[in-house]
Design a protein around this nucleic acid. Structure first.
Lengths: 416, 416
DNA sequence: GTACTTACGCCTTTCTACGACAAAAGTAGA
DNA sequence: TCTACTTTTGTCGTAGAAAGGCGTAAGTAC
């Protein structure tokens, strides 16, 4: 050194504030990557001062709690920093064709209360949503002192527009064209402020796996096999929703076996007409053995009914034919089977495996696993909650909450 | 200060540095979103001071240039800030079965020089790579004063591991199992420092569309139809590579039409055996009309050869059968056809459209477009360059380069 | 009991980012 | 042609955040 003739050596600003925000640190805590301020310092590269300041802000906002835990690693034990699961709740409502599941979750994703509401098959929003919202209000009332409602996740069996929070249409339920969900939720005063997140049922099932199998695998196909057939895609750890959120319409792929058979979507030849739950139910009915719902068919299969088992296995095989293409395309590490039909997992998975291994290339199927949905028949509400939590607790949302709080506390109680 | 009883009211740090780094601003300039410091101020929300400092740093590093352009919008005209395309180059090498295309691109993605090297069908890395690297060195030498080599993009017809930069295997070429590419490139001293990015040929084709159709559409399927059949996926604006980078193996999907037919992959019943370029060539050969390469078949079709046209259309139809499933799954806005067979786009696309519209649901195909690859037979090198540029010029890489430069100039010349 | 390790609060220094002031360089209209 | 207005840009002083040193707390290892 020793020059100085060139002004570039004068004083150059640093220009590179790669520092992480409080929300980013919160995310590290929430995901369990960090459990103490020291962890955060190591992971973020920030100085102690910066980490301390951010954690203090998060703590004041009630988003994290400082416990005296953490075993020593040879020196002074660290003060535990963990997510304050009691800082609020999210609501989940998984609307099905004849049943709506509702539940309340804390910020750690634990279910605090749940209920199920039956309604007539194919009901419209007026019959479904107000009772569900009322029930959620009751659940919240019973859970006194559980913090404010930070978000609401809703899943619908049909096409939705996540951006606008409206139902676009539903093949299995009437009256859901262009229905905005916010007004129904806002009917309860305590929910009026909460943002609403809407997802397709198959998509939401995929999101539930982000709290399950996706912690192990980053590329997954998640099948929802119930009355209809849907597919959720997790690619590189992210849920892929496709253009206008309409990815995963696997049920309406045309297959040769179904040529000419009319589908509920108005077209003919769809996979659903030979492998969808409604079609299996219809088949059984034709044979003079009426069942009310796919769940009944599954129940029969579980008690050893040969015909029901055969139908399920056959359905799995046909699904596998189409799934094989998807597997070649996306090369997932595992296929997760969810929905009512996966209730008889062994039978259904046997059918799926049979044709998947025949249809896909050796490369794609080597090491491919076929797994049951982590949360079984609770996957709907878990996925709705996961969807809401992912949005409500994402770093930028946390940062926004903190600056908002500096102006005037709204939403979360500062400390109380 | 006089309180101290409650520290929470004292002075709270801001804790939320959402400010954008110099690299982020560079990205805005590079993508054309911003063309002046005022634009950057508006887009980033940073203060004039901060923007000025960052732009000064970028300018000193030679990454952007300040021109006196920009028309006035009613007041003083803004100084134009634009990407300094001459700050360096990236190299592209698209390895094919019998031909390797190489090219040099500037940072704006413009091709500065190009060449093509033929080699025996199915050659190994020893025969292919050294000549290609030598040719690139010659091209660079001719382009004196074009800046340092910042990155190298290579595409291979087979499976690759992008993370490690190695070829895993190739169905069409021998000797490519577990081949690391870096040593070959580093043989030329001027290239030794440059990072290497490796991609599958179909994947790279998809990346080329990020500079083409993907500027308009965020969800695309990109088909590479040449000797083999491959598929690249762009979902929500991102290229999806799948687990171990092996997504898009559409050619080895099993189809009923091909039952029993042996495929070059060792299996039987693959789509490629009835719709892949190599199969069409074999078919023509059986009929006593030998052709050397798919390109010859396409050339014949373009001159009106009925048999060639029929084969191409039939191939497109069969591809469309499988593609229909993918379309239902991912609901893209457009399907892009590339590779040699797309050279006869009209014929090939007709076949694809025919079966795609029959196979997919009305929802997925309404508004679906079938388009030719933006860069035709140059898509390979363009995609390689795009892959390298996306990595080399991404915000975090730019930031790293700037701090590096503060310590001691390496890589880019400071101003010179 | 002593030395060592790890965690963390407080303080000072450094440096970034902001906003105000002021000048430059155009356009629009009298 | 000249003047008022708009927009862009450079410079300066100040507030505030991040870093790092120092000292202390609270464990473990021997």
């Amino acid at each position: 050194m020793g020059d100085g003739s060139r002004k570039s050596t004068a004083k150059r600003p640093r220009v590179t504030p790669v520092s992480l925000s409080a929300g980013d640190l919160f995310d590290l805590v929430r995901t369990g990557a960090a459990g103490s301020r020291s962890d955060l310092r190591r992971l973020s590269g920030l100085s102690r001062t910066a980490v301390t300041a951010r954690v203090a802000a998060l703590s004041e906002a009630g988003l994290v709690v400082l416990g005296e835990d953490r075993p020593s690693t040879g020196g002074r034990p660290a003060t535990g920093v963990m997510l304050n699961a009691e800082a609020g709740v999210v609501l989940a409502a998984a609307v099905g064709r004849s049943r709506t599941q509702v539940a309340v979750f804390d910020l750690a994703g634990r279910e605090l209360a749940a209920a199920s509401l039956d309604h007539a098959h194919g009901s419209g929003p007026e019959e479904v949503l107000p009772p569900a919202v009322r029930r959620l209000a009751e659940l919240c009332a019973d859970l006194s002192g559980s913090g404010p409602v930070l978000g609401v996740g809703v899943s619908l069996p049909g096409t939705v527009d996540p951006a606008r929070g409206v139902s676009i249409d539903s093949p299995v339920m009437g009256g859901w064209d262009e229905v905005a969900l916010a007004p129904y939720v806002a009917a309860v005063e305590a929910f009026a402020e909460a943002p609403i997140f809407v997802g397709n049922d198959a998509d939401v099932l995929a999101r539930s796996e982000r709290m399950g199998h996706a912690q192990e695998f980053s590329d997954l196909l998640v099948v929802k096999a119930s009355t209809g057939l849907g597919l959720g895609i997790i690619a590189e750890g992210r849920v892929v929703s496709g253009h206008r959120g309409a990815a995963g319409e696997i049920g309406h792929t045309k297959v040769d076996d179904a040529a000419g058979l009319p589908c509920r979507c108005g077209d003919t030849g769809c996979l659903e007409t030979v492998a969808g739950g409604w079609a299996l139910v219809a088949r059984l009915e034709e044979e003079g053995r009426p069942v009310d719902h796919v769940r009944d068919l599954v129940a029969r299969a579980l008690t050893g009914d040969a015909e029901a088992k055969h139908l399920l296995r056959e359905s799995g095989r046909r699904l596998g034919d189409v799934l094989g293409v998807a597997i070649n395309l996306l090369n997932p590490e595992a296929v997760v089977l969810g929905g009512d039909m996966a209730g008889a997992f062994d039978v259904y998975a046997a059918g799926v495996r049979e044709s998947v291994y025949a249809r896909s290339s050796a490369l794609a199927t080597s090491g491919l696993q076929v797994l049951p949905a982590t949360f079984g028949d609770r996957a709907g509400v878990v996925g709705c909650a996961a969807m809401a939590l992912d949005q409500v607790l994402r770093p930028s949302a946390i940062d926004a909450r903190l600056v908002q709080e500096k102006v005037g506390p709204v939403g979360l109680e500062p400390t109380t």
